[in-house]
Design a protein around this nucleic acid. Structure first.
Lengths: 333, 333
DNA sequence: TATTGTTCTGGGAGCGCTCCCATTCCGCCG
DNA sequence: CGGCGGAATGGGAGCGCTCCCAGAACAATA
């Protein structure tokens, strides 16, 4: 293993000079810098992460707690992860993978051992049992999601309440009077998942405010439950003309089933949803939707970590405003 | 930060004794061990990973290169990742997340810096451009997948050739004479993805050997391409009575479309596929399938890493034998 | 010329561990 | 009684780096 000492000897400078060339923490003459860099390449030197961490008290590693149980919407999770890893690398950070399933305490373990300088936690629920544990972590913690009690913790999330309002409002603007929200499986609501509840609240607020007929239908994935759900929604008496869908997993099935029933979108039924843009674009019928800005949320989470790491930046909460893209699946009624 | 020195003082022993209690690398009297452990708890001591890595030349971290581009089958990827992380933790290892998209050289970077003791690489293709790079990594490398040239690298994978043979054979055994393989998108074959090619080869070998009529149809995801593909497969002249599907993404759509065409499975058409068991079970029609043993493959990959890390175990190749589960979607013809 | 400021570099302590090289204290044998 | 083997522990060098504390060289100013 080539050490900084050997690089120093080869370049005819001191260890500290090599170190400073590497870190840029003090000015080095062009000439010296060139010589050092040349030696580094010639010898094939790579700094030892452990030694660096020990001396500088910085691991340059970020902990990331990911839900890996199947049942969660994996493609979206992966978009988050991908964007977090990419952003972290831009700040010269690596990412240590922790799983939600391994239990709480993982975040605590890795920070207590100085394996990571900060932790990002995904899939945080309203009343997440991990919150108390996370407060004891002696390093910046950033949550993707919004627990009810987030005192002392940074949070980033989409503004789901506004999203719910916007989707209902969009249909109302088009003249619909009776609309339905097809939501996540009942279990999601029962678990008190923050985003589902907030979207629902926004939806309810808007439909009340604008005096719309509105019904809400949690829906399991799977062909049969989607069909059953549609039976309910489209029951003769109801006169539903607009659908707000907050359940990415069933979108494909739902649209196929509508086609099977010879219902045209948006001719017979307007449909608006909340999902990643690429999903909305690639469905049998492209859907007007509010984007899940996974990429942006991931980037912001990393920025928040860096802010708290470099400055004494206090924890903050950021709710991204929803962005609605019209893809023609909603029409005037 | 509590150090080993403070623990030693508190317990009235030397640093080395504390270290040995922690590592178990030499016998310590019950009495002393108890006192040390008590002090550790009382003081809230946590070993510093950087110092440990520096002194022991072991990071206790595994690099894992994951494909994060959407388009890959994320749920399956995540099963791998989950099982790898869980297995790694059982060996007291953590996992550093690297992305395929960040390019090759990531594996090299993290090992050269002693951030990781070994690397597992997922989604390896036949003629993977990363292979040469990986050979230069100065640490054990384990591949999930089977590149053509894997000299010096450990590999684990499902035996896709046998799987292809088994699925064709299963239909042949049931008396089918004309069957079709609905495969991955053309791009996957063009990319030379190892598993797709091997399954295809096994399928072709078996159909030839048993003199079956066989056609092969790469298929894009999306409703329209699935429908188009079925048009081809079910073209009147062909007389296809059995389907081998090697494309998890389209399974749901395919079955719905068959239902739409009033084709019964397995009455009119036998269908067999290769996918994770939980997917096969939860389709509109449960499918007879060969399992993708993601969990097992992940565990084995970690075991191989550990073997190479603890013993001077040489690189090895392991192909898991396929396991076929009959769920009644294939019938005699 | 002496003083001060500026720019660049060197020396090396110390980060918290691991593990090699002792040392101490037994009981037991010859 | 001396010597010896085994069991339990202590001491501390050294892992590769960072960053504080100086010092050297030179230019500008008094």
């Amino acid at each position: 293993m080539i050490t900084i000492k050997e690089v120093a000897r080869h370049a005819g400078v001191s260890m500290s000079t090599v170190s400073y060339v590497l870190s840029g923490k003090r000015t080095i003459s062009e000439e010296t810098k060139r010589r050092v860099e040349q030696s580094i390449v010639t010898l094939g030197y790579h700094p030892n992460a452990g030694a660096r961490a020990l001396a500088s008290n910085r691991s340059q590693v970020l902990g990331l707690v990911v839900p890996l149980r199947s049942g969660v919407n994996m493609p979206v999770i992966m978009q988050f992860v991908a964007s977090i890893v990419a952003s972290a690398r831009e700040h010269d950070y690596d990412v240590l993978l922790l799983t939600k399933e391994a239990g709480p305490g993982e975040a605590h373990r890795v920070t207590a051992r100085s394996m990571t300088d900060a932790v990002i936690v995904m899939d945080v629920e309203s009343d997440d049992p991990r919150i108390p544990e996370l407060r004891t972590v002696d390093a910046p913690v950033v949550l993707l999601g919004m627990p009810d009690d987030h005192e002392g913790l940074s949070c980033v999330d989409l503004d789901f309440a506004t999203a719910g309002r916007q989707m209902a409002g969009h249909l109302a603007d088009l003249g619909h009077h009776s609309i339905a929200l097809i939501g996540s499986p009942p279990a999601v609501y029962e678990r008190g998942t923050s985003y589902a509840a907030r979207l629902l609240a926004g939806f309810r607020g808007e439909t009340t405010k604008r005096s719309l007929q509105a019904s809400v239908h949690p829906c399991e994935p799977g062909y049969d439950s989607v069909a059953a759900c549609l039976d309910e929604v489209l029951a003769p008496g109801r006169g539903t003309t607009g659908l707000v869908v907050h359940n990415e997993a069933i979108l494909g099935t739902l649209l196929l089933e509508l086609r099977r029933r010879s219902l045209d979108v948006p001719g017979d039924l307007s449909v608006i949803t909340l999902c990643p843009d690429d999903v909305a674009e690639n469905l049998p019928v492209p859907l007007t939707s509010i984007a899940v800005p996974a990429q942006e949320l991931g980037t912001i989470a990393v920025e928040m970590v860096m802010a708290r790491l470099t400055q004494e930046h206090a924890p903050e909460v950021r709710l991204l405003q929803p962005r609605l893209t019209d893809r023609g699946s909603t029409a005037a009624h």
